[in-house]
Amino acid sequence: MLKRMIQRHRHGAGPFGHLFQAPDGQELMALDCETTGLDPRRCELVSVAAVPIRAGRVQAGAALDLRIRTPASLDAQSIRVHRLRGVDLEDGLEAEQALERLLDFIGNRPLVGWCLDFDLTVLNRVARRHTGFDLPNPVIELSDLYRRHQARRRPDALPDLRFESAARCLGVPVIGRHSARGDATTAALMYLRLKKP
């Protein structure tokens, strides 16, 4: 909180000033990253995707889907998860370029995602290096929403907090699992189900 205030003070008038303004609440962004590993302090970005949600609709077609040039720590283990080989990433962007495109795309809109902490930690490592501040966007954590949703329906059961089982429970078809864009789209659809009046 304090950090965010300080960063806003420092960068609010800079080239990224618009990122710090309060969102208008019309639009949200579902966000997902694929990385080279499971340790957010060490792993590198492989791809990142953002899918806009507006007026109760997921704008699946208008999504941003970026690939980042082969990072050093890409190994067989991670290739098995997201199926992106070094060759696939050769024409990818530099991490910094990708971040700029992403910031440009998401603007100041609130972010929605499943276990966003992980994604944001990875992104913020790049962001701090490049722009000097963390992503200032408000965050809506899907797994929290889902836990509350389940607690209301079945207060006695422990919720199964895996992404796939949550999607199944909400009746959301999993679209392209382990691609950043697919997961972000699925997350956006889950958000709409959880927010259903």
């Binding site: 109760g56 704008q59 699946a60 077609g61 208008a62 789209t185 956006a188 659809l189 189900r193 259903k196």
Partner: peptide, 12 residues
């Protein structure tokens, strides 16, 4: 063009 413009929505 079509792919880029498609949206998705839920209906109860």
């Amino acid at each position: 063009q079509l792919g880029a413009a498609m949206e998705m929505a839920w209906f109860d």
